[in-house]
Design a protein around this nucleic acid. Structure first.
Lengths: 313, 313
DNA sequence: AAAAAGTTGGCACATCTGTGCTATTTCAAT
DNA sequence: ATTGAAATAGCACAGATGTGCCAACTTTTT
């Protein structure tokens, strides 16, 4: 009885999927009503009598993308395969590659595109192979890092982007963290900053890195933050930053003196951009990524498999 | 480039087949025109990026059914799996089972159903488990075999069928081969035969066995055929029979004295029945089966895998 | 034997899907 | 830079497909 039924379901599936019969043809052939065929096919799929298999590409990656996208209501998610034997640098390079590809796909002729810091963002430039020319504007979203990290300087990133995509770029002539709110305000209100402020309000695309918890090794912060700043961040349990704005695991922005001294786009202003892409990977950044996604600061994410898995765990 | 394309095709296939997105949804999601999605899916199938697999049932069997059906323009074909370690009896029994199932499926309330000889046909009775009651008429298509094979006698078959399906059966009170055309004509024109002749002209279903080449072991013929008959069949290269009518490998019916002495439905009359099912297996019968299919005598076939393969070879 | 649960036939109707056609765009190669 | 080939956008339209609904029928359960 059940054997018979499965045989029938298999036959229907065979005619439909392998012989490309139409459901009406199958119905005529087997003397069964057409709508019943439709239901039998659904049943055959449900009972795994027909299995549809997508190969050549790990569908597990799509699954991760799909789940993250739905969980955080994002616009798009890209998850690349984790190559376990790769070094951190190699993994970051692959991520840059994916980000480059994605940027090429979403950029439009006269977009205003903002960038923050980071080795992954800087790496994008080297992965852009003959992009189609645009007339976009590339603008920093944060002040510069410490002088010892000049290769990842925002100005360098936006300059190279403009050269590749054929648009223009703006520079920011100040470190991300100033010594007083007074100086910070002075810089940001100066006429040098006028155009940048305008662009921050009209961003089409923002591509930002995501910083993980501070550690003594993260040298790019050491020259920017005072001892008191670091103590404060520890006290208030900062788990990461985005555009030099720190927050805790609940997505609460750690406002106060440090933020007041920071030259960077405020996260609520960032959020007005249409496309806000976070590019980050590694286990240590997972809490920061999750917090940012929950906050709604970002609506796109580019990461790798192992990171994605922990985001969902 | 090709890598990217395959990745895209895989993603489209993933969304379509695994996430049950509609093509329009995918198009919106990926910013690609809908009809392009349709074509991409076709391409993905063509390039085996998606593979649709039907399991639990050997689709090779369906394939054989499909090919035989199309090659000979048949109405339906059933091919059952060959169990290599089975004995001849066991294989025949499985074939009877398939025939029983098929008969249950095609029989209608007031059908006139004709049967010929054979162990496989006789075996059908034992495989009919609580069939739905009909009011059908079961009629022999041939005269009786030699008395030494009484267990396969047509009368027994039709009687048991009528009991199982709840209809009536007719008997034939004569051996299949008579001693002279004169006697044969006398019997077939007698009033005893009147009803049978009527039913032969109004058959809805005919279920017939197929005989292979004569051999000294086929005892059921030994008592019926004379030495001259056998010599004639050898001379004219008979390869088998259907309803006691012999033919050669080209489908030429071997008419003559023997046929004139035979009590059986003529093949051209048989061909007027709506459903004409041949039930046979084994390598030796392959030429006979092929000839009958080519002749158009049958429009349905029930056989097993190894036989089916050789039919197509 | 009666009741309950599940299956199919049958129809209506809204989508969904495939395909032919043309105009554009993209890409590769010269 | 120019050209030629391939892919895509875009539209129209005919089928194909899925689903809700109800009645008739089977099978299972009790």
């Amino acid at each position: 009885m059940k054997q018979e039924r499965n045989h029938l379901l298999a036959k229907v599936a065979y005619l439909y999927y392998e012989q490309d019969y139409t459901q009406a043809q199958i119905a005529k052939e087997l003397g069964i009503y057409r709508t019943t065929i439709s239901r039998m096919l659904k049943q055959a799929r449900d009972q795994h009598i027909v299995e549809i298999h997508i190969q050549g590409m790990d569908t597990g990656l799509f699954n991760l993308e799909f789940q993250i996208k739905n969980k955080y209501h994002l616009q798009s998610v890209v998850v690349i395969a984790s190559q376990a034997h790769d070094s951190h640098q190699q993994k970051n390079q692959r991520l840059s590659q994916a980000a480059a590809l994605h940027l090429k796909q979403i950029i439009k002729p006269h977009d205003i595109v903002g960038f923050s810091w980071g080795s992954v963002l800087a790496g994008i430039v080297w992965q852009l192979h003959n992009p189609t020319k645009t007339d976009a504007t590339f603008v920093p979203l944060v002040g510069g890092p410490s002088p010892s990290n000049s290769q990842y300087h925002v100005n360098g990133i936006v300059y190279d982007m403009a050269r590749q995509f054929g648009g223009k770029s703006l520079f920011v002539d100040a470190a991300a963290v100033q010594e007083s709110k007074y100086v910070r305000d002075g810089i940001m209100n100066s006429h040098y900053f006028q155009e940048i402020r305008y662009d921050w309000d009209h961003l089409n695309i923002a591509m930002v890195g995501i910083g993980g918890p501070l550690s003594t090794q993260t040298s790019h912060w050491r020259d920017l933050l005072s001892v008191e700043d670091e103590e404060m961040l520890r006290q208030r349990e900062a788990i990461g930053d985005c555009c030099c704005t720190f927050f805790d695991r609940y997505g609460k922005i750690l406002s106060g003196d440090l933020l007041d001294r920071t030259i960077a786009i405020p996260l609520d202003q960032l959020q007005k951009a249409d496309i806000r892409v976070g590019v980050a990977r590694s286990v240590t950044k997972v809490p920061a990524i999750k917090a940012l996604l929950k906050m709604g600061t970002l609506n796109s994410l580019i990461t790798d498999e192992e990171t994605a898995q922990r985001i969902l765990a």
